[in-house]
Simulated assay, not measured.
Amino acid sequence: MIEGNAGAAAGAGTGGDPRLDALRAEVEKIIAEAQIGARRAQRRAKLWHAMYLSLGFPAAVLAGISGAAGLASAGARVPAAILALLSAGFSAGSTFLRSDARHMTNLRRRYAWQNLETRARLVLAYDAYEGPERLHTALLVLHELRTTVPSSALILSEQQGPYQLPTTGQTPPAVQPTTPPPGPGA
């Protein structure tokens, strides 16, 4: 994929300038890393979405069935209780894993990686032909953008917000929820 486009860009108009070729190779590495990162984030998002559905849907269905069974007759109390316990287990598992938050986290990461890849491709398409100085500057910007791709741990901690333990004899301070900055494409 990138070999055809980037290879054509690298071979066209270089004039044999090794600095320009080295800078283009760095941009191509960023493109490859961004593609891999986006694919991984997409796979993880799919996994967590499937986990969210596979735990949440049965919990809702079992809760409804257990309520109906419990109200149907006095003899159905034990099966209704078992179904209610299963429903509670699925619900607790879903809450514990926070698969909905992990799904959104990985979607944000995918969009960030895709944004980086797009920017890198634009650098190859334009800045590579403007000379090594311009390409070097654009590469520095790409590296800065690369450092802004969020990690899963950072996004999850942002979603939880700060928590402070109250000291003895004092009322706990009001916890202000933090809103994460809008991700790429938001």
Rank of each mutant, 00 (worst) to 15 (best):
I2Q: 02
G4Q: 13
N5H: 08
N5G: 01
N5W: 03
A6M: 06
G11L: 05
A12N: 12
T14I: 08
G15D: 06
G15I: 06
G16M: 05
V27W: 00
I30K: 03
I30T: 04
I31F: 00
A32N: 03
A34H: 04
I36H: 12
A38P: 03
R40Q: 13
R43S: 10
R44M: 10
L47N: 02
A50F: 10
L53M: 09
S54C: 11
S54E: 06
S54D: 06
G56H: 02
G56K: 03
P58C: 08
A59H: 00
A59D: 02
V61F: 09
L62N: 00
G64I: 07
G70L: 04
S73G: 10
A74F: 12
G75S: 15
P79S: 06
A80S: 10
S87H: 05
G89D: 03
G89S: 10
F90Q: 00
G93C: 06
T95F: 14
T95I: 13
R98A: 08
R98P: 01
S99T: 06
D100H: 05
A101D: 04
A101N: 02
H103A: 03
H103E: 08
T105K: 00
Q114K: 10
T118I: 11
R119C: 11
A120L: 04
R121T: 03
R121H: 10
A128Y: 02
E133N: 13
T137W: 15
L140T: 13
V141N: 07
V141T: 13
L142H: 01
H143C: 12
H143R: 15
P150E: 06
S151I: 09
A153L: 12
L156M: 14
E158G: 04
E158M: 05
G161H: 06
T168R: 12
G169V: 06
G169N: 07
Q170N: 15
T179W: 09
P180I: 03
P184L: 09
P184A: 14
G185M: 12
